[in-house]
Design a protein around this nucleic acid. Structure first.
Length: 430
DNA sequence: TCTGGGGTCCTAGGACCC
DNA sequence: TCTGGGGTCCTAGGACCC
């Protein structure tokens, strides 16, 4: 049976979020910056029109920003996360099956409603999300997830389609012409490297890729590429994942606000990161069997000595205890640390994740067991206090208590937490 | 002199996504 | 001076076993 899948996403998501509570920003050139105000991670249409690419370092475009009065915002993930759940809730009302694919994208499966007019439905979706949440979305429809993604791209490019494109309503000849006009790089799963390799074979447009032999491409690339080609040809190979599968790893890392040199400072930052990673782990009722740490110097500074070590350490027994996990991270750090490098980033990783309740106690382990009731109560308290009073209020050891914290990130221009903090509620004046 | 072969598990690294 | 963070999947290659 022919599937009918829609991919709905929010246009310039972070920028659109900032505009919800600042309507005066409508029509003005805006960017949202990554942590540490490092790179551009979202651009308004006005900024895209100026040719600013995704990921451009902010310091490299300050001149342009002055010239064109571009406004920059530090990213406000609390706000984006909250608006994201609202958008997803509204979208979920339209189709029986929904996969929340990312913070701003959702697949909807309409296969079970074969007679529904999806172009009209797409327009209704756009209106309702705009009215109820305040952000603009685009809708792409096709018979596979890959085609729906492509249709979504098309919906944004063709102003006359008003934000909705259903490939299955187009005559075959129109689709051929359309796909021939789109670069293969736009296909979901084809990145920069793959696009270059494909070009060597003369495959440049989406039409070229669709016409390729999936078997042949599998030999030169991988099963992923084979699936992509089949999906372009209309054969559905990637299913909707309605329930998010449990995470296989948890990462917490940050670039530092200023470079650090000492093991003590690295240790302090890693303790803070592990606090957050362990909290995430407990939220999904998981335990970790292995802990990883990595360090980075600045790869862009060619004059600097480079050192990018990483290592992992298995735990004697799987655990969700911040103290146990932190201790392991400190062991790894001590093993990795070398004097004399200008470190700019570090991170921790929780690996070999398992479910907490199926965890077996280990007979002769001297480490606190993951099911020790006292530790469990302590960790639950830690999570509650931090949820109520803000991240990092309570930590293990000296996680972030010493001043000054050179490694702490810089955020120059963050907007208030309009929707999640009473003190930041927008005030309406009559 | 002549030095197997196949399977499995693990890890590192690459490529991709948002 | 200033260059994000958090994920997934796949492959190649080494270690190890019989």
């Amino acid at each position: 049976m022919q599937r009918r899948i829609a991919l709905v996403d929010v246009n310039n998501f972070y920028v659109s979020c900032e505009r919800v509570f600042r309507p005066d920003l409508e029509g003005k050139p805006i960017v949202v910056l990554s942590n540490n105000d490092g790179c551009v991670v979202a651009r308004s249409a006005e900024v895209k029109a100026l040719g600013v690419p995704m990921g451009l370092p902010w310091f490299q475009m300050k001149e342009l920003a002055r010239e064109h009065r571009i406004l920059a915002f530090s990213s406000n993930y609390t706000l984006y996360g909250d608006l994201s759940s609202r958008v997803m809730a509204v979208l979920g009302q339209f189709a029986p099956d929904q996969e929340v694919y990312s913070i701003d994208e959702s697949f909807l499966d309409f296969t079970r409603q074969p007679h529904l007019d999806l172009t009209a439905t797409g327009q209704t979706i756009r209106q309702r999300v705009k009215q109820w949440v305040g952000v603009p979305v685009s809708v792409g429809i096709g018979s596979t997830k890959t085609l729906a993604k492509l249709a979504n791209h098309v919906a944004k490019k063709r102003a006359d389609w008003n934000g909705v494109c259903d490939l299955d309503t187009l005559p075959g000849s129109d689709i051929d012409a359309l796909l021939a006009s789109i670069e293969v790089r736009e296909v979901w799963g084809v990145g920069r490297k793959t696009a270059m390799k494909l070009a060597e074979q003369g495959i440049r447009s989406v039409a070229d890729l669709r016409a390729a032999n999936p078997h042949r491409l599998r030999e030169r690339y991988s099963v992923v590429m084979e699936r992509t080609v089949r999906e372009l040809q209309g054969e559905s190979c990637i299913d909707l994942e309605e329930d998010a599968p449990p995470r296989q790893q948890i990462i917490a890392s940050r670039s530092f606000g200023a470079p650090v040199w000492t093991e003590a400072e690295l240790a302090e930052s890693l303790r803070a990161y592990m606090g957050r990673a362990a909290e995430k782990l407990r939220r999904q009722h998981g335990v970790a069997g292995r802990v990883g740490v990595w360090l980075e110097t600045n790869r862009h500074r060619l004059q600097d000595a480079q050192y990018h070590p990483s290592a992992t350490l298995p735990l004697p027994a799987p655990s969700d205890d911040t103290a146990v996990l932190t201790k392991a991270a400190m062991t790894v750090l001590h093993h990795l640390y070398r004097d004399g490098y200008r470190y700019v980033k570090a991170g921790v990783m929780l690996l070999e994740l398992g479910e907490r309740n199926v965890e077996q106690g280990q007979l002769f382990a001297d480490a606190p067991s993951a099911t020790d009731p006292l530790r469990t109560a302590l960790m639950a308290t830690l999570d509650r206090v931090n949820a109520r009073w803000g991240k990092g209020t309570l930590g293990i050891g000296s996680a972030g208590l010493r001043q000054p914290r050179r490694w702490a990130m810089k955020r120059g221009t963050m907007t208030p937490a309009y929707t999640t903090n009473w003190d930041d509620l927008a005030i309406v004046r009559a």
